[in-house]
Simulated scan of single mutants.
Amino acid sequence: MGHIREPKGVDFIIESKPLTTEERKAISDFIKKDKEKLVAKRNIAKRMQPEQTKKHTRQPHLKST
């Protein structure tokens, strides 16, 4: 994310309303699910053997002469 520069003589004031209990719970649940997905992806990558990772990488094609 970039920063917004304030023009001279202008102040950006951001006022956000407090979250409701339902909104807090929804955000918390979303974060938990996202973290679970990341952990699952990492576990799959750790279980792969080096031979399996070689199969999934691109190999350069050699021209035969």
Rank of each mutant, 00 (worst) to 15 (best):
M1F: 00
M1V: 04
G2T: 02
H3K: 14
H3T: 08
H3F: 12
H3M: 13
H3E: 13
I4D: 11
I4N: 13
I4H: 15
I4Y: 11
I4C: 10
R5T: 03
R5V: 01
E6H: 01
E6V: 05
E6R: 04
E6F: 07
P7M: 02
P7W: 00
P7A: 03
P7I: 01
P7C: 05
P7R: 06
P7V: 03
K8L: 07
K8A: 10
G9M: 01
V10Y: 03
V10S: 00
D11A: 14
F12T: 11
I13R: 10
I13Q: 10
I13W: 06
I14C: 07
I14F: 06
I14R: 02
S16T: 14
K17H: 15
K17C: 14
P18H: 01
P18L: 06
P18N: 03
P18T: 00
L19W: 04
L19M: 07
T20Y: 01
T20L: 09
T20I: 08
T21W: 00
T21N: 10
T21D: 13
E22P: 08
E22C: 06
E23S: 02
R24P: 08
R24F: 09
R24V: 11
R24K: 12
K25T: 10
K25P: 02
A26D: 06
I27C: 15
I27W: 13
S28K: 10
D29W: 05
D29R: 01
D29Q: 12
F30R: 12
I31K: 14
I31Q: 12
I31G: 09
I31R: 13
K32S: 08
K32W: 01
K32F: 09
D34H: 11
K35D: 12
K35V: 13
K35P: 09
K35H: 12
E36W: 02
K37T: 06
L38F: 07
L38Q: 13
V39S: 14
V39P: 06
V39L: 15
A40R: 07
A40K: 10
K41F: 02
K41M: 10
R42Y: 13
R42F: 11
R42I: 12
R42W: 10
N43S: 15
N43M: 15
N43L: 15
I44N: 00
I44M: 04
A45S: 07
K46I: 15
K46H: 14
K46D: 15
R47D: 13
M48E: 12
M48H: 08
M48W: 00
Q49H: 14
P50E: 08
E51A: 08
E51Y: 05
E51I: 02
E51M: 08
E51Q: 07
Q52F: 03
T53S: 15
T53W: 09
K54L: 01
K54V: 04
K55P: 09
K55V: 09
K55H: 02
K55F: 05
H56S: 10
H56V: 06
H56P: 00
H56D: 06
T57E: 11
T57Y: 04
T57H: 08
R58G: 11
Q59A: 13
Q59L: 11
P60A: 05
H61P: 12
H61M: 15
L62F: 05
L62S: 02
L62V: 05
L62E: 01
L62K: 03
K63A: 00
S64W: 02
T65Q: 11
T65I: 03
